Structures are given as structure tokens and as C-alpha cells.
Lab assay of single mutants.
Amino acid sequence: TEIRININGVTIHVRDASEELKKLIEHLLRLGADEKEIREVLHRWEK
């Protein structure tokens, strides 16, 4: 699944996002995570 996240005008594009990762990101956004925090989570997730 491919997702695009727009945070304050900055688009983060994620290829091959699992449903689990998608739910995690949606949850973090609801909690008010910023772009830097989302990128950090994505970076750690890929490892």
C-alpha cells in the first residue's frame, strides 16, 4: 500500500506501507506528531 501524509504543507510519501504502519501513523497524527517525529518513526520502522 502506498500512502502520502501531508503535515503542514510537507508531504511524506511512503511506499509499501503495511496496514499496521498506516494505523500507527494515523494514531501518531491524532496525537499531534509533527513531520520530524513521523519521519523518525518511519526511519526506525524500515530497519
Rank of each mutant, 00 (worst) to 15 (best):
H43W: 11
E2C: 10
I38N: 00
R15K: 14
V14G: 01
I38Q: 00
I5F: 10
R44T: 13
E35H: 08
D34E: 08
E20R: 05
V10H: 12
V10Y: 07
G32C: 03
H27Y: 12
L31V: 13
R15L: 14
N8S: 11
E37I: 12
L29R: 03
L29P: 00
E35Y: 13
R15F: 13
R15A: 12
L21E: 01
A17T: 08
V10W: 02
E19N: 09
R15P: 15
L31E: 11
I25V: 08
E46W: 10
L29T: 05
E40C: 05
R4V: 15
E19H: 10
E46N: 12
R4H: 13
L29Y: 07
V10S: 07
E26Q: 13
L21H: 01
V14T: 02
D34V: 07
I3P: 00
E2Y: 06
I5Q: 01
A33L: 05
I38L: 08
H43P: 00
A33C: 06
I38M: 04
K22Q: 12
I12F: 06
R4M: 11
K36T: 12
E20V: 09
N6D: 11
R39L: 09
K36E: 11
D16P: 08
H43T: 09
E40K: 06
H13V: 14
R44D: 15
I25M: 06
I25N: 00
I3T: 04
N6S: 10
R39M: 08
I3S: 01
K36P: 07
R30Y: 15
E37L: 13
K36S: 12
H27K: 12
L29Q: 05
V41E: 12
I38S: 00
G32E: 05
L28I: 09
A33K: 06
E26G: 08
I7M: 10
K36G: 10
G9A: 04
K23Y: 12
K36L: 07
E19G: 07
G32H: 05
D34W: 03
L21N: 00
K22C: 02
R4P: 05
E20F: 05
R44F: 11
K47R: 10
R30G: 09
N8V: 04
E46T: 05
N6C: 07
E40S: 05
I25W: 01
E19D: 11
L29N: 03
E20A: 09
H27G: 11
I3A: 01
R44M: 08
N6E: 14
D34K: 07
G9T: 05
D34C: 03
I7V: 11
L24N: 06
S18F: 03
E46D: 15
N8G: 10
E37M: 12
G32P: 03
V10C: 06
R4T: 13
D16V: 06
A17Q: 04
E19L: 12
I7H: 03
R15T: 14
K22V: 13
N6F: 14
S18P: 15
K47Y: 15
E46P: 03
L31W: 11
N8M: 09
H13Q: 11
V41L: 10
R4S: 13
L24Y: 11
T11M: 12
K36R: 11
E40I: 07
G9Q: 04
T11Y: 09
E46C: 07
R39P: 00
I25P: 00
E19M: 08
R44S: 10
G9H: 04
L21W: 02
K36V: 10
E2K: 03
G9R: 02
W45M: 02
W45A: 02
H13T: 14
I38Y: 02
T1R: 08
E2W: 04
V10M: 06
T11V: 15
G9F: 07
D16A: 10
K22G: 06
V14F: 10
E35C: 05
L21G: 01
A33N: 03
G32A: 04
K22E: 10
E37N: 06
R30L: 13
L24C: 07
R44C: 15
R15G: 05
K47E: 15
L42E: 00
R4W: 14
R30C: 02
T11I: 12
V41S: 07
R30E: 11
D16Q: 12
K22L: 14
I5Y: 05
V10D: 05
E46K: 03
H13A: 11
K36C: 03
S18W: 03
K22M: 14
A33V: 10
G32R: 01
R30Q: 11
K22Y: 13
R39A: 05
A33Q: 04
L21Y: 02
L24K: 07
K22F: 15
L28T: 04
L29H: 05
I12V: 07
I38H: 00
L29M: 10
L42S: 00
E40A: 06
L29V: 13
R15H: 14
V10I: 11
N6H: 13
V10G: 06
K47T: 15
E26C: 03
L28F: 09
R15S: 12
I7W: 02
E26T: 11
K47A: 15
N6V: 13
V14A: 02
V41C: 09
V10L: 08
R39G: 04
I5E: 02
E26W: 13
L21I: 06
K22I: 14
I3C: 03
D16N: 14
H13I: 14
T11C: 09
L31A: 10
K47P: 15
K23A: 12
I5L: 11
L28Y: 12
G9P: 01
R4A: 11
V14Q: 03
R44L: 13
L28H: 14
L28K: 08
E26Y: 14
L29E: 04
H27T: 15
K47F: 15
V14R: 00
I5C: 04
R44E: 15
V10N: 07
I7G: 02
R44K: 14
E46H: 12
W45F: 07
E26R: 09
R39I: 08
I12N: 01
L31I: 14
G32V: 03
I38V: 06
T11L: 11
V10P: 01
W45I: 03
K47N: 15
E46F: 15
E20D: 09
W45E: 02
L21T: 01
R44W: 15
L31P: 01
L42K: 01
I7A: 05
E40W: 07
I25S: 00
T1Y: 14
I38T: 01
H43I: 15
I38E: 00
L24T: 10
L24F: 09
W45V: 02
R30K: 13
R15C: 03
E19F: 09
W45R: 00
K36Q: 13
G32K: 04
R30D: 12
I7D: 02
I25Q: 00
D34P: 07
T11R: 04
A33P: 03
S18G: 07
